[in-house]
Amino acid sequence: QTVHVKGVQYHFPNPEEAVKFALKVAKDLGGRVEFHGDEIHVE
């Protein structure tokens, strides 16, 4: 599972961890989380 944050990719073997990370980052940055297939983008 890959999380993209402002052009940087973070790889997580566990999808659940990836989602938790993405939600935390989005909250910290005041952004939103978008799901694109296997990828999660924080915009």
Rank of each mutant, 00 (worst) to 15 (best):
L29W: 10
E17D: 12
V25G: 01
H11D: 07
V42N: 01
V8C: 09
V25A: 10
E39C: 06
K27T: 10
H11W: 15
G37Q: 07
E17T: 09
K6D: 15
A26Q: 04
H4S: 09
K27D: 09
N14A: 05
V5Y: 10
V5A: 04
G37C: 06
A26N: 02
V3H: 00
E39L: 07
T2D: 04
F12Y: 03
E16I: 11
G37N: 09
G31M: 13
V25Q: 08
V25M: 14
F35D: 03
D38Q: 12
G30H: 09
V42L: 04
H4Y: 15
V3K: 00
G37D: 09
H4Q: 07
G37I: 05
F21G: 02
P15C: 09
V3G: 00
A18W: 02
Q9Y: 11
I40D: 01
F35K: 05
G37W: 05
G37S: 06
H11S: 09
F12T: 00
E43K: 15
H41M: 08
V19N: 06
V5Q: 01
T2S: 08
E16G: 08
F12L: 04
G31P: 00
H36M: 10
T2K: 06
E16S: 10
V25F: 06
V19C: 08
K20N: 09
F35N: 04
A18T: 02
E17W: 06
V19L: 15
R32F: 11
V5G: 01
A18G: 04
T2L: 07
K27W: 10
V33L: 12
V19M: 15
G7Y: 04
V42T: 01
D28I: 13
V19G: 04
K24D: 10
Q1P: 10
E34I: 15
H36C: 07
F21L: 02
V5K: 01
A18I: 00
F21M: 03
I40Q: 01
F35L: 08
V8N: 08
K6T: 07
F12D: 00
E43S: 13
H36R: 15
A18F: 02
L29R: 05
G37H: 08
I40M: 05
G30W: 06
P15V: 14
G7Q: 05
